[in-house]
Amino acid sequence: MSSAWQFYISSVLIYLGVDIMACWGLNLQFGYAGLVNFSFIVFQAAGAYTAAVLTLGRPGPASIQQYLGGAHWPFPLPVLAAGAVGALLAAGVGAIGLRRLRSDYEAMVMLVVSLIATSIATNQTNLVNGANGLDLVPKPLAGVLHVSALSYQWFYVAMTAVVCVLVFLLVTLITGSPLGRSLRAMRENERAAAALGRNVTGLRMLAFVVGGGIAGISGAILVMFISAWSPGSWLYPETFVFFTALIVGGSGNNMGAVVGAVLVPVAFLEATRFLPQFGPPGFIDAVQWIAIGLLALVFLWFWPRGVVPERRRRFPRARSQPAATGGGRLEQNSP
């Protein structure tokens, strides 16, 4: 395989890792907890900006880009800080948007948050360099490894895979535990969950904050690879790509999120890059978002549970095991 193809494939694999992490984060919020977070991309952006600022150093007065703060933190501290900032931002947004609002209203607030965040980042030029965004973000460990550009690409693929595994362990820990069952119970019937003694506001905040933190980490991994980040990278439609991925892959299960990330942001969007040119200049690119919307609609209409549906949890009938289960814990069975 030529080095050019290796560069391309390794880039796609890194993007796949980032998208899988982001889908897991959104899946925790939307798939497990039922939170319609239309501002999800904002938390990825916050993580990306944090990692960029914490690796770029302080801007000088003659610097080509201006931003708040700045430091030369060694890897992996910027990634961890990005996760923390994503979580903190989620806590702030969640405190306003999740406590009293539900469903449609909650979604509207999140969409507005996304628009406000883009507007602030674009117009407050001293915050994160406005519309031009941040560039020349150093690549982690590049100065230490002393390897060829292609070898570094594959190193970055491996590093992304390691971070993916860590994030997977975190989401599995949450979703496979009694906490995960509480999240699902809240998603299915919030009042019933509350009646059973669950703190639904706390559960919603927890899912929102952890999802925000994961989004921040995914943003950090992405920005340190591409070396640049600007408001154009996180416009609100980007969130809908992740939602489409979850709808197509199957929300409410981590494997469905992986399949969705493979099929939508990677396979589907990358495949359109290879389409032969036809129509006026820009025609194919213009219909791309329409195609994403149609994909979501088709799946919602015909396969609402996605390619990998969420496993249905069933409990044994009381008659079949009256003695064994009476008053004790209920066992889960596969369908």
Partner: peptide
């Protein structure tokens, strides 16, 4: 041949690699 960067560094990086490779 068109190679859409979508005006976004995050989209442009794989687009550049794809153009060079394919």
């Amino acid at each position: 041949v068109e190679e859409d960067t979508r005006g976004d560094p995050a989209d442009a990086v794989p687009a550049a690699n794809k153009m060079i490779a394919s």
